[in-house]
Amino acid sequence: MGRLLVPLGLGFAFLYLPILLMVVVSFNDSRMVTSLTGFSTRWYASLWSNAPLMEALFLSLRIAAVAATMATILGVLAGFALARFGRFRGRGGFAGMMAAPLVMPEVITGLSLLLLFVALEAAFGFPAGRGAGTVAIAHATFGAAYVAVVVQSRLSDMDLSLEEAAMDLGARPWRVFATITLPLIAPAVAAGWLLAFTLSLDDLVVASFVSGPGASTLPMVVFSAVRLGLTPELYALATVLIGAVGGALVLAFVVLRRRDRGASLP
């Protein structure tokens, strides 16, 4: 263990120094991201009044919430079927279809979904045009794959006799699911939702393909801003997002840990 501490420390430095840099620079007064001049919160104020960026942020949050919820419904159903239905007909194809988005290059997912939406519009007039709705559908599709994996692996770890015991004690199948299965996989479901949410919030490539005029998501706006030049405003945005996500994760971790520990104490 001792001599492994050095690579571990270096690895963490590699992961965290860029983040630290962004946080520091976001509080720097200078317009340049490369020289420190003094403490200031002006980039946060400027971020708040940057209407296109803020609009894009709220649009992305809305899309992410809808997509993550849809992905969670699909993923829980799929993960449950894969973990509990044994070998049903077409299981192989279904499992492959559920898992494929995990390894699919984003450009392919984006391109193929765009071509589908174009074809659907040509054939049925629906969806008419593309925008937040089509982005949410695309995000729900690959988000569902992640939720399904998380849920399925949690269900396979779970002692099957818990559900059998509930059945044996008189619970009908849907009550077994509601009173035993769902509460026990709840942390996995929550983690899956959060994963789908951040994946949606983070996605540039798929959204660039399937979005339409007037529906620019946050990564799309950030991407064009970066190409025009780096500003401390973007680092302020990064600090806010990292703070929110990191805070939520650490909080969830601490709560889960305390709950586990509370359970094992009298």
Binding site: D159, S161, L162, E164, A165, A166, M167, D168, L169, G170, A171, R172, P173, I180, P183, L184, A263
Partner: peptide, 20 residues
């Protein structure tokens, strides 16, 4: 007759106590 409708109950090898 499905398990939930049987007047039969079982003590499981793992006990299967609901942890939550």
């Amino acid at each position: 007759v499905p398990p939930h409708a049987r007047p039969v109950n079982m003590m499981f090898q793992s006990y299967a106590l609901f942890p939550h």
